[in-house]
Design a protein around this nucleic acid. Sequence first.
DNA 1: CGTTCCATTGAGATGTGTCAATTCAAGTGG
DNA 2: CCACTTGAATTGACACATCTCAATGGAACG
Lengths: 225, 225
Amino acid sequence: MAQICLPIALEASDVEQLDSIIQRGRPLRKGERVFRQNDVFNAVYAVRSGTLKSYRVGGSGAEQITAFYFPGEILGMEGIGKGIHPNTIEALETAAICEIPFELLGDLSSRIPSLQRHFFQLLSQEIAEDQLLIAMLGKNSAEQRVAALLLSISARHARRKLSATAFRLTMTRADIGNYLGLTVETISRVFTRLQKNALLSADGREVIILDAGQLRAVAEGTAQL
Amino acid sequence: MAQICLPIALEASDVEQLDSIIQRGRPLRKGERVFRQNDVFNAVYAVRSGTLKSYRVGGSGAEQITAFYFPGEILGMEGIGKGIHPNTIEALETAAICEIPFELLGDLSSRIPSLQRHFFQLLSQEIAEDQLLIAMLGKNSAEQRVAALLLSISARHARRKLSATAFRLTMTRADIGNYLGLTVETISRVFTRLQKNALLSADGREVIILDAGQLRAVAEGTAQL
DNA sequence: CGTTCCATTGAGATGTGTCAATTCAAGTGG
DNA sequence: CCACTTGAATTGACACATCTCAATGGAACG
């Protein structure tokens, strides 16, 4: 169980301890939420299956998606700081998650140094990823952003031993646009352009990456269409 | 010393221990760097005085500023994850910082639960802040972004018991533009517009906020000019 | 006292947003 | 099982915010 939820190297006895604090919840259906913005924080969650999105509602009522989560990833850590979740997490499809009560995790981390380090790393990596997104939103064209997202999703599929070139998007074009700071129409047009240049084949949400090299070049701004 | 660098509530004996691992470095001058992108990570840093910026250079060679740091704030935590700093930190003016070796901090955190929690919180809050910036870059107009940044800087001055309404910017218009995903010219024009509407008075980098309420309305998109 | 960096302003170009219409797929209820 | 509704995606025409290019003036600095 702990193996599935927190794939790290631990002593057998440690795994046992960790195992004891992890809760398996019922699966979420599409549209259901793990927690909502402003809920009190008391646990982080590991994605076992399915995909989810994180979003927050700003002062003007506009939603902003800040992340997509795939199996093996940890979510909910933004809430540690203030003790309140600054965002809502919603399932994009049927999804199973593990709940890891934070209070107990803190205690356990004190006793298992490698676990503590692991969580520091997880938090730190989320910062690094957010900053990557910031860089993208600040500087890149619509094509670069879409290409980068597709490559990121591709890489996350590959890490799970799934096809890196053919996969199904679980989010709508609107979600993608929202995440990348673009409109639905722009996303649609970019998809069309990428297909015309034979970098991609897309039938609705079914995507096949035809030329990963070129796609990377587009993402990095080395090539343009 | 530890009091200055990590203002948290600790037992006297704990403070002593923490104190012993903190290094005071020589002050940095404008343009000097704390560390560079791809340097190996082995410490985090607390800002004692002065301001700094964090930026990373992408594949296409473009710089992207991801944060500004003020006294009392902690920087360098993005590097924990991969053991390598994903960004460069550079002083915007003369600045003094404390170095906190991470190896020792980890050990100490295991023994002092409140210290561990404190660091989890710091990391988590950086995530929350980054996501706020993401939301801004994705959805907001140039005016909203500039207004929001000015208010953020104002709040950080206030936290240090300095004037929240009158202060000197330590970064150039180019830095601001880079951070907000806008060009220098746009920043300049927004400043001009904000002044014409009497929300602000700016003489070069010297800024006086004349109408914080309206400025907040602009930042939130409730008011437009 | 030149040199360099920084800030401002104008005019025109352009990428992306907005508005609107259409098609298609998936549910839903009679 | 068939309308009917609803949500998602695509495409076109046009608007507009911001970028690009260019010129100028001032401040900082050696």
